[in-house]
């Protein structure tokens, strides 16, 4: 079964990973993306105190569905689960889990990488980094007709 969800609660990684298991599969690759304290930017190390994620929920769910469908058409995988958290996240807390179950691990690894890469580019969710002395919305790679 495929699923894509947004939540404000802590994500249980095991639950996501086990929900994609099915009898024809032999491997699940799971990405646990979490809040990073130290980020190198322009040669400087920036220290983040916590993160705030915000989503355009209806559109984010639509884009996640499209992403799952597209990825399943490109790779020999069986099931995909994506759960993204929104709201305030402390350092080390999980922001996104992507689990991909496949008959064979190689396809699951490749699909998982593609899913996170495309999620960061297309799914309308934004991350605010909060520092000791300010805050900034993170901007990803430009997508579509941005002007």
């Amino acid at each position: 079964m495929d699923f894509w969800e947004l939540t404000t609660d802590a994500i249980k990684i095991d639950d996501v990973a086990r929900r994609v298991v099915s009898p024809e599969c032999g491997a699940t690759v799971t990405l646990d993306g979490y809040a990073r304290r130290f980020t190198k930017r322009d040669g400087k190390v920036i220290e983040t105190e916590y993160l705030v994620y915000e989503a355009y929920e209806e559109m984010a769910l639509k884009e996640m569905q499209k992403l799952v469908e597209r990825t399943k058409s490109e790779f020999a995988i069986s099931n995909v689960g994506i759960v993204h958290r929104t709201g305030r996240l402390e350092i080390g807390e999980t922001s996104v889990v992507i689990s991909v179950a496949a008959p064979h691990r190689r396809d699951a690894f490749a699909a998982c990488e593609q899913l996170i890469k495309e999620l960061k580019r297309t799914v309308p969710i934004w991350k605010k980094e909060v520092y000791a002395d300010g805050e900034a919305w993170s901007e990803g790679e430009s997508f579509g007709d941005a002007i």
């Binding site: 996104v96 999620l119 960061k120 799914v123 934004w126 993170s138 941005a146």
Partner: peptide
């Protein structure tokens, strides 16, 4: 309609 800067989830 919605307007927004480049997305940055993940």
């Amino acid at each position: 309609i919605a307007i927004f800067t480049a997305v940055s989830g993940g």
